[in-house]
C-alpha cells in the first residue's frame, strides 16, 4: 500500500514522467543496438576477432560462448519490445535485473580478465572493461528502475513529445556517450580508415563503374563477349580482360581504380604476342571527380616511367600503391 502511494507521488511530480519517457527511449535504443551488434558478432564468429576476447563469454566454456551471446542478444530484443509495447511490470523488472547483473558481471570481468572488452556492442566493445563501462551499466540500471516505478510505454513517447522530453533525452544520451568507450573507438576507426589497398571492394560495384565509363563504351563493339575471361585485383586497381572478336589471341585489359564514384579507367589492347598496341586513360572529363580521378592515373604513369616516389597530387589512397610499386624496382 505504501509502495502504491510512493508511486503515485512520484508520478505526480511534473518532470518525472518526462524523465521516465526519455529513460525508456534510451533503454530501448541501447537494448536494440546492443542486441543487433551482438547478433552480428555471433554470426561472424568464423572471421577474425573471436568471441574469446569479448565480454562475459570469456568467463564461459568455449562451446557455450556463441549460444550465450545469441541468448543475450535475443533477451535484449525481447526486453526492448516489452518496454516499448506494454506496461506490464515483467519486462521492466527484467530490465532492472539485466542491467544489475550486467553491472556485477562487468565488475567481476574487470577483476578476473582485465584484458577483455565488455562485448556490450559486440565487436565494437573490444576496449578492456573500465569504470566507464561499469558506470554505463549502473546508469542504465538506474534508468530501468525509474521506468519500473513510472510505467511508461512507447505510447507515452509519442503522446508526450515536448521540449522537456527532448532535453531529458539529450541529457541522458550525452551521459551515455560520455560513459561509452565505443565512441572514441568508432571515431578512431573512421579517422584512420583503412587505405583503399586494404579495403574489401565488391567486384559487382567495380563492374558497374567500368560499364559506366567512356573507355568501356568505346571498346565494347570490339569485344567478343561482355563477360571477362579473367579478373583480378592488385592493390587499388581491379583488372578485367576481354577477348577481341576479330583478332585471335588479342585481348583488351581494363584497369579500374577502386576508390571514388567516378574512378579513372585505363585500358590497353594487347596482341597475342604480348605487344601493346594502344593504351590510354579516359579521365572522367567534365565531371566533379576529374581532379581526383587523374591523381592515381598520373601517379601510375609516373611510377612506370620516371620512378618518382610519389605521384604529385595523388590522393592519399594512391600513395601507398605508388610508393610500393616504385620502390619494388629499386
Amino acid at each position: 500500500m505504501a509502495d502504491m502511494t510512493d508511486l503515485t507521488v512520484l508520478a505526480a511530480l511534473p518532470q518525472v514522467p518526462a524523465f521516465a519517457t526519455a529513460a525508456l527511449a534510451l533503454l530501448v535504443l541501447l537494448l536494440v543496438l546492443g542486441g543487433a551488434a551482438k547478433m552480428a558478432t555471433a554470426g561472424s564468429d568464423a572471421e577474425p576477432g573471436g568471441l574469446a576476447r569479448l565480454g562475459p563469454g570469456a568467463l564461459m566454456p568455449e562451446r557455450w560462448r556463441k549460444p550465450f551471446l545469441m541468448f543475450c542478444a535475443g533477451g535484449e530484443c525481447v526486453l526492448a519490445a516489452g518496454l516499448l509495447f506494454t506496461r506490464h511490470p515483467l519486462p521492466r523488472w527484467g530490465t532492472v535485473a539485466f542491467f544489475s547483473v550486467a553491472t556485477y558481471v562487468l565488475w567481476e570481468l574487470r577483476r578476473r580478465r582485465p584484458d577483455v572488452g565488455c562485448g556490450c556492442f559486440g565487436e565494437a566493445s573490444g576496449t578492456p572493461v573500465g569504470l566507464r563501462s561499469i558506470g554505463r551499466a549502473t546508469a542504465l540500471a538506474g534508468m530501468a528502475v525509474l521506468v519500473t516505478l513510472v510505467p511508461v510505454s512507447g505510447a507515452d513517447l509519442a503522446a508526450r513529445a515536448s521540449l522537456e522530453l527532448a532535453v531529458a533525452f539529450g541529457a541522458g544520451l550525452a551521459l551515455l556517450v560520455v560513459l561509452s568507450p565505443e565512441v572514441s573507438e568508432t571515431i578512431a576507426r573512421v579517422r584512420y580508415r583503412a587505405p583503399c589497398e586494404q579495403r574489401a571492394v565488391p567486384v559487382a560495384r567495380t563492374v558497374s563503374r567500368l560499364r559506366a565509363s567512356a573507355e568501356w563504351r568505346s571498346h565494347l563493339p570490339m569485344l567478343e563477349s561482355d563477360q571477362p575471361v579473367d579478373t583480378w585485383r592488385e592493390l587499388c586497381w581491379r583488372f578485367f580482360v576481354y577477348r577481341i572478336k576479330a583478332t585471335a589471341g588479342a585481348e583488351v585489359v581494363f584497369a579500374v581504380y577502386l576508390s571514388g564514384r567516378r574512378p579513372p579507367v585505363r585500358v590497353a589492347v594487347v596482341g597475342a604476342d604480348g605487344a601493346t598496341s594502344t593504351a590510354g586513360t579516359i579521365g572522367t572529363g567534365g565531371t566533379p571527380g576529374t581532379a581526383h580521378a587523374s591523381g592515381p592515373a598520373e601517379g601510375a604513369r609516373a611510377a612506370g616511367t620516371t620512378g618518382a616516389a610519389e605521384g604529385s597530387g595523388s590522393p592519399g589512397d594512391g600513395r601507398l600503391q605508388e610508393s610500393i610499386g616504385v620502390s619494388g624496382r629499386h
Partner: peptide, 19 residues
C-alpha cells in the same frame, strides 16, 4: 587463362615496365 600473364597485362594497362 593462366595467371602468369596477369603481370604483363596489368603492366600494359598501367604503363608500368615489366622488368
Amino acid at each position: 587463362m593462366g595467371v602468369e600473364r596477369r603481370h604483363a597485362l596489368a603492366s600494359a594497362a598501367l604503363g608500368r615496365t615489366t622488368t
